[in-house]
Simulated assay, not measured.
Amino acid sequence: MDSHVLTPALPFRLSAPLPGWALPRGREPSEADAAFSAGIALKSLDDLVQSGPLWGGCWRARQALRCATSAVRLMGRNEEEAALRDAVLLTMRGDDPGPAGKVFLAY
């Protein structure tokens, strides 16, 4: 049986550095400065994810598990990450994973 040849991922290029006018100038940063910096951080993260790294699927699955854990807590349930993961991964195809497992599957 032949193995599939893995093609190397394209190298990630960082966004261009910020121009001088975008950097704070010796004053206390305001809420607008913080929002601007948060936007830059989100754009950099988006560039990284859009580059299609090999670990992207694992990262997205981990984020989905964390989001599902938060959503389950907001529903008033007490399942932890491990219980959610087990509810989905240890359930046979076609069986009911329970309410918390359904939330995880939705993510």
Score class of each variant (00 low, 15 high):
Leu42Thr: 14
Gly39Ala: 04
Glu81His: 06
Asp2Thr: 15
Lys102Asn: 05
Leu105Lys: 11
Leu74Asp: 13
Leu45Asn: 09
Ala16Ile: 05
Pro29Cys: 07
Gly26Ile: 06
Lys102Ala: 04
Cys58Phe: 10
Glu81Ala: 13
Arg60Ser: 10
Leu84Asn: 04
Ala9Glu: 13
Ala100Asn: 06
Ser70Ile: 11
Pro8Asn: 11
Phe12Ser: 11
Leu89Ala: 04
Gly56Glu: 01
Thr7Cys: 10
Leu74Cys: 14
Ala83Ile: 00
Ala87Glu: 05
Met1Ile: 14
Glu81Phe: 04
His4Gln: 15
Pro19Leu: 03
Val5Trp: 04
Gly57Met: 07
Gly101Ile: 04
Gly101Ser: 03
Leu48Asn: 05
Ala68Trp: 02
Ser44Asn: 12
Met75Cys: 12
Pro97Asn: 04
Ala16Ser: 14
Asn78Ile: 06
Ala41Gly: 05
Ser70Glu: 13
Arg73Val: 07
Ala38Cys: 07
Ala87Trp: 03
Gly56Leu: 01
Thr7Trp: 06
Leu89Ile: 02
Gly94Ser: 12
Pro19Arg: 05
Ser51Ile: 09
Gly57Glu: 10
Arg13His: 08
Pro17Cys: 13
Thr7Tyr: 10
Ala71Gly: 09
Ala61Pro: 08
Gly98Tyr: 04
Ala61Thr: 09
Val103Cys: 10
Arg60Asp: 09
Val72Gln: 03
Leu45Gln: 08
Leu6Ile: 15
Met92Thr: 15
Pro8Arg: 14
His4Arg: 14
Leu42Ile: 14
Pro97Tyr: 02
Ala87Lys: 03
Ala68Ile: 10
Arg77Lys: 07
Gly56Val: 09
Arg85Ser: 08
Ala16Gln: 12
Thr7Ala: 13
Ala82Pro: 00
Gly98Asn: 07
Leu105Val: 03
Trp55Lys: 11
Val5Gly: 09
Leu42Arg: 15
Arg85Ile: 01
Arg25Ile: 02
Ala64Asp: 01
Ser44Phe: 03
Arg85Asn: 00
Asp33Val: 08
Trp21Asn: 03
Lys102Asp: 04
Asp2Arg: 14
Trp21Glu: 01
Arg62Ser: 10
Lys43Glu: 05
Glu31Arg: 14
Leu42Tyr: 11
Ala82Gly: 05
Leu45Arg: 06
Cys58Pro: 06
Val49Pro: 08
Leu10Asn: 14
Ile40Arg: 14
Gly20Val: 00
Arg25Gln: 10
Trp59Asn: 05
Pro99Tyr: 02
Asp96Ser: 02
Gly76Phe: 02
Glu81Pro: 14
Ala64Gly: 00
Arg85Tyr: 10
Arg27Gln: 03
Ala68His: 04
Leu74Ala: 13
Pro29Val: 04
